[in-house]
Simulated assay, not measured.
Amino acid sequence: MNISSLTLVNFPAVIKLYADDELMLVANELEFKTNQNLRNMYFQPQDILIDNSGHVFNIHNTEQLALSKTDYIMRLDEVIKLVQLHLSNHGTCCISKFSANSIQDALNFL
């Protein structure tokens, strides 16, 4: 595990898989380190982790699960759109009305 990058993550965070509207909530650092499902996943180069500050990290799972921070920071409107798509996949009604005052509020909704 690339601990130096993991310490930069502000939890809760979500994992956004490429070409999938489903978001996977990661509540805290311990869950990220110990979740066997995450460690067994094959991640695509386009899969990302988004923390509650909007910082984007690439996810690598070659020999071990690791993160590398990118220079990209998502805006609140981008995160709201991702949450709306996630909610739509779950059949939630009136997703266009979903809003949040911060990225952390949007992630906490999940």
Rank of each mutant, 00 (worst) to 15 (best):
residue 6 L to R: 05
residue 35 N to A: 10
residue 50 I to E: 01
residue 55 H to R: 09
residue 74 M to Y: 10
residue 46 Q to V: 00
residue 31 E to C: 03
residue 104 Q to T: 08
residue 84 Q to W: 12
residue 13 A to V: 01
residue 86 H to R: 10
residue 23 L to F: 09
residue 53 S to W: 05
residue 59 I to Q: 00
residue 64 Q to R: 14
residue 110 L to F: 10
residue 54 G to E: 03
residue 64 Q to P: 11
residue 4 S to Q: 14
residue 53 S to I: 03
residue 25 L to V: 09
residue 103 I to W: 00
residue 16 K to C: 02
residue 106 A to E: 01
residue 24 M to H: 10
residue 99 S to P: 06
residue 6 L to A: 09
residue 6 L to Q: 07
residue 59 I to D: 00
residue 22 E to P: 14
residue 110 L to E: 04
residue 16 K to R: 04
residue 72 Y to M: 08
residue 17 L to S: 08
residue 57 F to P: 01
residue 92 T to S: 08
residue 101 N to F: 07
residue 37 N to C: 01
residue 26 V to K: 00
residue 106 A to L: 03
residue 7 T to P: 13
residue 26 V to C: 06
residue 107 L to I: 12
residue 61 N to T: 09
residue 45 P to V: 11
residue 70 T to A: 13
residue 17 L to V: 07
residue 40 N to R: 13
residue 42 Y to G: 06
residue 55 H to N: 09
residue 59 I to P: 00
residue 69 K to P: 07
residue 46 Q to W: 03
residue 55 H to Y: 08
residue 86 H to K: 09
residue 97 K to Q: 08
residue 96 S to M: 09
residue 93 C to Y: 15
residue 67 L to W: 00
residue 29 E to N: 11
residue 20 D to Y: 12
residue 39 R to Q: 15
residue 110 L to Y: 07
residue 63 E to W: 07
residue 75 R to C: 09
residue 92 T to L: 08
residue 34 T to R: 13
residue 3 I to Y: 10
residue 22 E to I: 14
residue 24 M to P: 04
residue 62 T to L: 15
residue 97 K to F: 07
residue 36 Q to S: 10
residue 86 H to Q: 08
residue 90 H to C: 12
residue 26 V to R: 00
residue 33 K to F: 12
residue 95 I to A: 15
residue 31 E to H: 04
residue 26 V to T: 02
residue 96 S to V: 07
residue 30 L to I: 08
residue 108 N to R: 14
residue 60 H to P: 06
residue 108 N to Q: 12
residue 86 H to S: 11
residue 39 R to W: 08
residue 77 D to W: 06
